[in-house]
């Protein structure tokens, strides 16, 4: 029975060690996630100080005021969903192509996908300002006789910026899941009478669903909080909740209202993530995920 006691003691020790090893992480989360969230919540129930900032109060006015920002929320959701969809439409064929290349060529292509991201995000977005500005693509289009088109400071410009910047976040999880996909399963499907499209729908897509969902989340969540791309490529006209938050904290200094908007944004994202987890677990258990 001594051995039993020893192992019990060992378990106790290992629990203590586990707690010790987790301490930095726990402290990190407590300090940088939980505490700020609580502050945000408290602020959201407060009032704006006369010169701006926070004044203690207990009211729901800030939440009641939120419908005035419905446009920003709607814009953000729409652009995030649309951007995710576009990333998917562009990223899936790209990931598929990458996953089906061999050896050196694949490595080279993967590096090419990553190379632009060695420069700063801001520089890349500023570059798009020039490309989409009237001296860029519109000038070329006009030269080719397509008439005048406006790109910069339009929702389309913001969408282009979003797809460009977030594409790799979509491509890499997809690439991993497609690369792992056993190509013999595709042959088996064809052998059993399924054409290319039927095979894609019944085998390729469900088996890359995990990559697809994680890619979609990796893209969707940050777009929901996006601020820089709409600010630079949207000219202050394409407005995300992120931009509203920046304005509320940095210009009109209405911290309580900004906090309320931030809390609701977090809730919206949380809802999206829950939806994602639901879909993900269904993908695991269900016989076939039919996304299309």
């Amino acid at each position: 029975m001594t051995s039993g006691n020893e192992s019990a003691g060992g378990r106790g020790r290992s629990r203590a060690v586990t707690a010790l090893l987790l301490a930095p992480t726990s402290a990190w989360y407590l300090l940088l996630l939980i505490v700020p969230l609580i502050i945000l919540l408290v602020f959201s129930l407060g009032a704006r100080a006369p010169e701006g900032g926070y004044a203690p109060a207990l009211q729901l006015d800030n939440y009641l005021e939120l419908p005035t920002r419905a446009t920003a929320f709607f814009n953000t959701l729409w652009m995030a969903a649309g951007g995710t969809m576009l990333c998917l439409l562009v990223g899936y064929p790209l990931a598929y192509y990458l996953a089906t290349r061999a050896g050196t060529k694949r490595t080279l292509l993967l590096v090419l996908v990553v190379v632009p991201f060695w420069t700063s995000f801001l520089i890349r977005t500023y570059a798009w300002m020039t490309i989409l500005g009237n001296q860029g693509i519109p000038a070329i289009a006009e030269g080719l006789g397509f008439g005048h088109i406006a790109l910069i400071n339009t929702p389309l410009a913001v969408m282009i910026g979003i797809v460009y910047n977030y594409l790799p976040l979509m491509v890499f999880p997809l690439y991993v899941s497609l690369e792992r996909l056993d190509k013999r399963l595709l042959e088996a499907s064809k052998d059993l009478g399924a054409g290319r499209l039927a095979t894609f729908r019944q085998v390729t897509l469900p088996l890359s669903a995990a990559g697809l969902l994680s890619g979609a989340m990796l893209v969707f969540i940050p777009i929901m909080g996006e601020y820089v791309i709409p600010a630079l490529l949207g000219g202050g006209k394409v407005f995300f909740v992120g931009n509203a938050l920046v304005d509320l904290f940095l210009q009109s200094r209405n911290w309580p209202f900004g906090s309320a908007a931030a809390i609701v944004l977090i809730l919206v994202i949380l809802f999206a993530v829950t939806l994602y987890l639901r879909l993900g677990s269904r993908a695991g258990i269900q016989r076939e995920v039919s996304i299309l």
């Binding site: 446009t71 407005f239 931009n243 304005d247």
Partner: peptide, 10 residues
């Protein structure tokens, strides 16, 4: 301040 924030998010 609120007016301007509304205009921008409109």
């Amino acid at each position: 301040a609120d007016l301007w924030a509304r205009v921008k998010s409109a």
